[in-house]
């Protein structure tokens, strides 16, 4: 009797759950379609760090992106560029990769936005979930929150400009909150050793001079290691 009741409950709930997923994805679908023609881009980026433990001058670099997930950053000088939230990747939010849930739909000052929670179906890059704020009028993502399993949080606030018919970031402010980090090699025996305090701060990236669909080859994005000669 119990089993029958359980089966009935599942039979009723499962389509509802699937529907909820489908319903939430309808906010991402227009974005996917909007950027379907974006195969690659390059842009100049200026980076400003505002982190206590990251004393760096403003940096300039060139970023290369190729659909679906190839990224390369080049600079004449040494450069640190944030992996999560630092660049725009429209192919990041595939329905097959996430369980998508609608958190909130807002309408404020004539702007319609929704907040979605994306939970990866498979463990990848230590990613626990993404919280996206979507401007449903322009089909852009003005805010993205990345939450990782170890408690790291990154929140990107993105401003857009139109370049070659595509809305692409002109400015990204990335707030970083790292509660702990790898301290491999530091002896626990050490009486002086104090658990490192968390790291937080922000990184601002200003994009300009977009060049779109230049047709970069995949081998151009072969991982280059930081070191050696320029």
């Amino acid at each position: 009797m119990k089993n029958i009741f359980l089966c009935l409950t599942l039979a009723i709930l499962l389509p509802l759950l699937c529907e909820a997923q489908e319903d939430a994805f309808r906010y991402l679908e227009p974005i996917e379609k909007k950027y379907a023609g974006l195969k690659d881009y390059t842009a100049d980026v200026k980076i400003h760090f505002d982190m206590e433990t990251f004393k760096a001058p403003d940096m300039e670099a060139k970023i290369y992106y190729k659909f679906p997930d190839k990224v390369k950053v080049e600079s004449k000088r040494v450069i640190f560029f944030p992996k999560e939230g630092g660049h725009f990747n429209p192919a990041l939010f595939k329905e097959k990769d996430y369980e998508i849930k609608l958190l909130k739909a807002l309408s404020d000052a004539g702007k319609n936005t929704v907040r979605l929670r994306l939970t990866p179906k498979t463990m990848k890059r230590n990613l626990k979930r993404l919280i996206l704020t979507i401007d449903t009028d322009r089909n852009i993502i003005p805010e993205m929150e990345v939450i990782q399993f170890d408690g790291r949080k990154m929140k990107a606030s993105i401003e857009y400009m139109t370049s070659n018919g595509f809305d692409l970031p002109s400015h990204i402010k990335l707030n970083i909150d790292i509660p702990s980090y790898d301290t491999e090699g530091v002896s626990e025996f050490d009486q002086w050793f104090k658990k490192p305090k968390g790291v937080n701060g922000s990184i601002e990236m200003t994009y300009s001079n977009y060049v779109i669909n230049s047709g970069y080859r995949f081998d151009f994005f072969k991982r280059s290691r930081p070191s050696r000669k320029r």
Binding site: A61, V71, K72, V73, E74, S75, K76, R77, V78, I79, F80, F81, P82, K83, E84, N126, R152, I176, I178, Y181, D182, T183, E184, S224, P226, S227, R228, K229, R230
Partner: peptide
């Protein structure tokens, strides 16, 4: 040397 940062950052340039 850069291990603590490589998870969070792309690092390029002549570090060494």
């Amino acid at each position: 040397m850069l291990k603590p940062f490589q998870r969070d950052f792309f690092i390029s340039g002549n570090v060494l």
